[in-house]
Design a protein around this nucleic acid. Structure first.
Length: 279
DNA sequence: AGACAAACCTGTCTGC
DNA sequence: TGCAGACAGGTTTGTC
């Protein structure tokens, strides 16, 4: 769920904590991504007494900048992560792993049942030195994806285009749901080797990726299960998905008599229309 | 290079 | 009703 539109929805709904000051930092003691413990002392040192300056996003990563502090808080929601602010006195939800108390009594909480998500620190202005952030391709919403660069990057890999889209280096922020959605909009078969895509089809795909993500963002993201914004609202985009999780349903193209099919690629479900989407 | 599997976890749904 | 197994939005790592 947390792909670019969901993370951007969280970023936007974090606006009410900008200007708030951190008075305490708490950790559940449970390991987060890949079984690694949180570096609590460093997080305390970096954030205690600091004031939230801005929330930024890089791909699916959320970055919280702190006024006059060299380190920013870097958050990834993984599969089931939530990042929310709560009014004073709101009880702590189960599976809360990191909690920041604010001087006005509110709290900011990172909650994640599966603990595939992560909270860490990143040096402000040197985000690209971070191993994961450094690999990220251009942002289809915040920035511009250059079609000829995208085409060149595609020509360098024979991997199926659906797999290549999930890699984050071609473009940042596309996950399993929107990869299927964008390929359907662009009429491209998910198994097409990336290197076989013409410049023209790359252009259609770049446009489709941007439009699919923008449409989802307009609906506050897709909530299949866990996702909510930073103020606790579910996204509505699951009602507007064309192919994702719609196996055996009629293709949404009114002129197409086809049916959506599902298969597994790289251990992930892919949905597509065999009539509309060509190699 | 790339296909494939496993690892990190819990919750939910399906089928027997 | 209960239990086992499959599966889920992501990323990293290792093997072949």
């Amino acid at each position: 769920m947390p792909e670019l539109p969901e993370v951007e929805t969280v970023r936007r709904t974090l606006a009410p904590i900008v200007g708030a000051t951190i008075s305490s930092v708490w950790w559940s003691g449970k390991n987060l991504r890949l079984g690694k413990p949180l570096a609590l002392p460093a997080l305390r040192k970096a954030s205690k007494g600091a004031t939230f300056e801005a929330a930024r996003r890089l791909g699916k990563y959320l970055i919280l900048d702190l006024q006059d502090r060299p380190k920013s808080i870097l958050v990834h929601l993984g599969m089931s992560g939530r990042f929310r602010h709560f009014p004073p006195g709101a009880p702590q939800p189960i599976h809360t792993h990191v909690e920041w108390g604010l001087t006005d009594g509110r709290t900011l909480r990172f909650t994640d049942p599966r603990r595939f998500g992560n909270v860490e620190l990143v040096t402000r202005g040197r985000e690209r030195d971070h191993a994961s952030l450094g690999k990220l391709g251009p942002d289809p919403i915040d920035g511009v994806v250059d079609v000829s660069e995208f085409h060149q990057a595609c020509s360098r890999t024979k991997r199926p285009i659906k797999v290549a889209l999930l890699d984050q280096s071609l473009v940042a922020g596309v996950g399993n749901i929107y990869a299927s959605e964008a390929l359907w909009q662009a009429n491209i078969h998910p198994k097409t080797p990336a290197s076989k895509l013409s410049l023209r089809r790359c252009e259609r795909l770049v446009i489709a990726v941007r439009e699919v993500l923008e449409r989802a963002l307009m609906h506050g993201g897709t909530s299949l299960k866990d996702f909510v914004s930073a103020d606790g609202h579910a996204g509505e985009h699951s009602h507007y998905l064309w192919v994702y999780d719609r196996e055996d349903v009629a293709c949404p193209n009114p002129e197409c008599p086809g049916t959506i099919r599902r298969f597994v690629q790289q251990q992930r479900a892919t949905f597509y229309c065999p009539r509309c989407q060509k190699h």
